[in-house]
């Protein structure tokens, strides 16, 4: 379930060296391109942990199910709050579900 980067939204974290997604990816898969936008260098190798999607400060990263496994098009969007996380899920029929819970106590 590799990440896709929205080129309009991504500002490369204005980083000189490493955007947050590149810093966090456990597989060393996110890279800053020459156009200063992040991209996933090997969709094949993603473990769909969604760390990049959660950490992106501008919501530019979407984790997408590969078509070989799931149909077009479903979305799962995390929003990080203070000690909470809110997820919005939209299935291929347009059904929306929302989940919000505490992910830390302190």
């Amino acid at each position: 379930m590799p990440p896709r980067v929205d080129r309009e939204k991504c500002d490369g974290c204005k980083a000189e060296e490493e955007p947050l997604c590149a810093q966090i990816c456990p597989g060393d898969l996110m890279v800053l391109g020459e156009n200063k936008k992040a991209y996933c260098r090997a969709a094949r190798d993603c473990w769909d942990c969604m760390s990049c999607t959660k950490v992106c400060p501008v919501g530019a990263i979407e984790t997408r199910a590969p078509y070989q496994l799931g149909y077009h098009v479903a979305k799962l969007i995390p929003m990080m709050g203070t000690n909470t996380i809110t997820w919005t899920c939209i299935d291929i029929n347009g059904k929306v579900e929302r989940f919000r819970y505490k992910n830390r106590t302190t």
Partner: peptide, 8 residues
């Protein structure tokens, strides 16, 4: 959860 949504 995304996978289930992608299977509808």
């Amino acid at each position: 959860v995304l996978f289930l949504a992608a299977r509808g």
